[in-house]
Design a protein around this nucleic acid. Sequence first.
DNA 1: AATATTGTTCGTAATATTGCGAACAATATT
DNA 2: AATATTGTTCGCAATATTACGAACAATATT
Lengths: 110, 110
Amino acid sequence: MDKQKQDYTSKQARLARYAKALGNPTRVAIMEFLAKQETCFFGEIHEQLPIAKATASQHLAELKDAGLIQGEIIPPKVKYCINKNNWIEAKTLFGEFFGQCVCQNGKCCG
Amino acid sequence: MDKQKQDYTSKQARLARYAKALGNPTRVAIMEFLAKQETCFFGEIHEQLPIAKATASQHLAELKDAGLIQGEIIPPKVKYCINKNNWIEAKTLFGEFFGQCVCQNGKCCG
DNA sequence: AATATTGTTCGTAATATTGCGAACAATATT
DNA sequence: AATATTGTTCGCAATATTACGAACAATATT
């Protein structure tokens, strides 16, 4: 018989995209730092991190690509902040994801 | 051992570890499939996926390494299921993470 | 014993990630 | 104009990820 090989849903793809962006402790630390403030500049973020500024800049670019943050140039500085809409989308996607396990009804395997 | 600078908290490291495991649509699909049932065998999982069985096996190994699932050999099959305790830990970590943004009080940047 | 079934592991290749220092661009200050 | 400040981009290296088919191991069935 033909195997029914499904594609991935849009939600699965978006969840994976956000998860991938959060799949590094430096980026988690950046997100938590940003989440605590209304805004902050690159320099303040870099100060918290044990990595070179080039690397910090790369991580910020990845978070931005994933849509979790946004940056604004305020010469000669760059202000970063959480992307509110996507933060809420990610929160919702992860909430739905973690809400769906039968194991939470005590019906886990075994 | 490769000694990393311990500038990140244990929670950040664990969140990143779980996020990394979920940072791929195939693995998200596997988790959602497993979450819906009490148990299931490798073959049933593989049937849902558009990838070779060797690749599916690798993804399952990664989810197992991350602690999100567990496997049990029931010859000649292998039964996989959600790791309940770690699922709950991950759910809690992501819940705390997404609960901490000031942007949710309308105090977002810009 | 021979064969079929079920998954894992091996070997390999292509691409992505992570990291650094150096060079660079843009603006501000002297 | 020259210099300082702020971050990004470039160039490079090391490692990790993703994928596949083939080979393999373990058990079940003939």
